[in-house]
């Protein structure tokens, strides 16, 4: 194992980090929409949200990636592996985040909303000033967990040919015949990335005045 290998794995770590950041961010946006749908008054919206969440949480990410990788070209969209990877990760995490956020909204103590109503806040004000911030406070630890989960799950994008940490370690392992060192080093990179995310989550929690987890 030489510094070259570490350098290559570090490049892979950048790919892993980039994929994770993009899919978690976009996934949060979609997750919010799906969460809104799942709390909507119209039953069809709720139904669609339920199926969406159930499907993307119920199917292994690996299968989802294979499906996207093969399905998109069939309907005329020829995608590079990295796009398939991003779409798969995003769909997967959006379903988890939608469900987490829904839990947050459902678990808001009704008295807090009632108190806001008695102060005279409108429906939109209640949502923006009271319900959304409280839901975020309730779900932040779970959302950070979800980010860590996606970071780890992103190792599966190696099967669609994206050169992330895991793929790099695989390549190095077969070219050097030193799988133990390469995969252990890959593991260390994942631990470091997770540590950074967990730290960031803690910092964000402190910023929001949450009790330390």
């Amino acid at each position: 194992m030489t510094w070259i290998h570490v350098y290559l794995l570090a490049m892979g770590a950048l790919v892993t980090a980039g994929l994770s950041v993009v899919s978690i961010t976009v996934g949060l946006g979609i997750g919010i929409l799906v969460c809104a749908a799942s709390l909507a008054k119209a039953a069809p919206l709720r139904w669609v949200a339920r199926v969406y969440v159930s499907f993307f949480r119920g199917v292994p990410l690996l299968v989802l990636l294979l499906l996207i990788y093969h399905l998109l070209p069939q309907i005329g969209i020829d995608v590079p592996g990295v796009v398939a990877a991003l779409v798969g990760l995003t769909l997967c995490t959006s379903a988890y985040q939608a469900e987490t956020l829904r839990g947050g909204f459902v678990n808001i103590a009704p008295g807090l909303v009632e108190a806001g109503r008695m102060v005279g806040l409108s429906g939109a004000q209640l949502l923006v000033r009271i319900r959304a911030p409280i839901a975020l406070r309730l779900t932040l630890p779970a959302l950070v967990n979800e980010a860590i989960m996606i970071l780890k799950a992103s190792s599966l994008v190696s099967v669609v040919g994206v050169g992330d940490i895991t793929r790099t370690a695989q390549n190095l392992s077969s070219s050097t015949y030193r799988p133990i060192e390469m995969f252990a080093c890959a593991g260390v990179f994942y631990l470091v990335l997770n540590f950074v995310v967990a730290r960031g989550g803690n910092g964000l929690g402190r910023l929001l005045g949450l009790p330390r987890a």
Partner: peptide
């Protein structure tokens, strides 16, 4: 616990399956 929970299952399996024979 922390190492297992902090790394992808795929990497763990690679380590076990491809690294195992070396030990």
């Amino acid at each position: 616990v922390e190492v297992i929970r902090g790394t992808p299952f795929l990497v763990q399996m690679f380590l076990l399956y491809y690294g195992g024979p070396f030990i």
